[in-house]
Nucleic acid binder design. Structure first.
Lengths: 159, 159
DNA sequence: CAAGATTGAGGAGTCAATCTTC
DNA sequence: GAAGATTGACTCCTCAATCTTG
């Protein structure tokens, strides 16, 4: 079966994503004893202005359900990596920020994960190729989400 | 924080994958009432020589656990999409192949999903760009797995 | 009553142990 | 005793309902 150049490109995204996530997960767990998900949440908070985010922002940026983020943050708080401050200007909102330990942990995770990315991803492309990947995939993502970090409430236009 | 060109490329893979999977999942469910996972398993069997696979081959190609594939195939069999023939040349093995209904269902899923890919992915790149994506990502995947469809038993070299 | 967040029930996936056949 | 496959116990995630505040 011939799938066509572009269809093949999508399959290569699928395969590369799957293979790399497995490796990154295993390496992070091996070196730091931490699942990739933890890193994923921490880096989102770390990148946020003031290193603080509302639960809903966090959920939206992770493109995952609200309830998921509640449970995950609960766990991170129990591990002492983040703090939930029940306040903000809005009495309903809950802000999450990194604790001192969380910042320190994030540093270790970041170093380990950056090394993994270099070793299993970056090595295999030129700067130009990397730019093509970024350009094309960002185009796709923007069209899909109506913006990079901000997925539409309803991901499917006609659903 | 500046992450570097290649690191940015990896993040764009992450975002595009996440956004597209969501959309493809929603569209397939909307048009055919079927989750993407079902399509994923069916296409693997459909692409296999003789449109038949061993459970373990299926698990390896999906890069997922053996127990997962057992449960999933159970469900597909209950839905009448595949048949499990307890035989083969090896008495321990179990072969899975598409039923007539499975082939018919796969046809519908394939048409719907191909349309989704065109609409949300292929449109946004030139043939040349698609080739760059495929080349780079296949390089990465081959290095990660030691081959395209055949992940190593132990995904992390030093684990 | 709309938005932010949480909770409970249920489905889906993983790990380790088991059973069967080579 | 090793490989193929399955099962059981457990964790993780999602959906829908709920609680709370604007």
């Amino acid at each position: 079966m011939a799938l066509g150049t572009k269809r093949a490109a999508w399959r290569s995204v699928l395969f590369a994503h799957s293979a790399l996530i497995r490796i990154f997960e295993a390496e992070l767990k091996h070196e730091c004893g931490t699942p990739l998900q933890t890193y994923d949440v921490l880096i989102r908070i770390w990148l946020a202005p003031g290193q603080s985010m509302r639960m809903s922002e966090l959920a939206d940026s992770a493109i995952l359900s609200r309830s998921w983020i509640t449970r995950r943050v609960e766990r991170l708080e129990a591990d002492g990596l983040v703090e939930r401050t029940p306040a903000g200007d809005d009495g309903r909102g809950v802000s999450v920020r990194l604790s001192d330990q969380g910042r320190e942990t994030f540093g270790r995770l970041e170093r380990s994960h950056a090394k993994s990315i270099d070793q299993h991803f970056s090595r295999f492309m030129t700067e130009d190729e990397a730019r093509v990947l970024t350009d094309v995939l960002n185009r796709v993502t923007v069209a899909a989400n109506g913006g990079l970090g901000a997925p539409a409430k309803s991901p499917v236009s006609r659903a």
